[in-house]
């Protein structure tokens, strides 16, 4: 049922929409090379790169659209790309 005035009461429920399927290239982050500069974290338009409990950055492939801004902005080339297998 459509809510009154089509108001959406569930904040941030766009997480249902897994945009990872848009990807042509998959960024791969090598934590051994990572210097934790946070560039990839802050520049990701999806917020798809998050820090895990060990302080390592991880790419959430459910949402990563493969724009590769992270790869381009990584100062130590810790992120590489591979073509997605369809």
């Amino acid at each position: 049922m459509v809510t009154i005035a089509a108001i959406i009461y569930e904040p941030g429920n766009s997480i249902r929409n897994k945009t990872g399927s848009w990807r042509t290239f998959r960024p791969i982050l090598d934590n051994n090379k990572c210097v934790k500069c946070e560039n990839c974290y802050i520049f990701c338009p999806e917020g798809a790169i998050q820090e895990d409990e060990n302080g390592n950055f991880k790419i959430d492939y459910d949402y990563c659209k493969g724009c590769l801004i992270c790869m381009n902005e990584c100062p130590v080339n810790a992120i590489t790309k591979v073509r997605e297998e369809k």
């Binding site: 904040p11 941030g12 429920n13 766009s14 997480i15 249902r16 929409n17 897994k18 945009t19 848009w22 990807r23 338009p45 999806e46 917020g47 798809a48 959430d60 459910d62 949402y63 659209k65 493969g66 724009c67 590769l68 801004i69």
Partner: peptide, 11 residues
């Protein structure tokens, strides 16, 4: 700002 939005890749 949650993921899952329809912005272009690299928006």
């Amino acid at each position: 700002f949650a993921p899952g939005h329809r912005g272009c890749a690299g928006c």
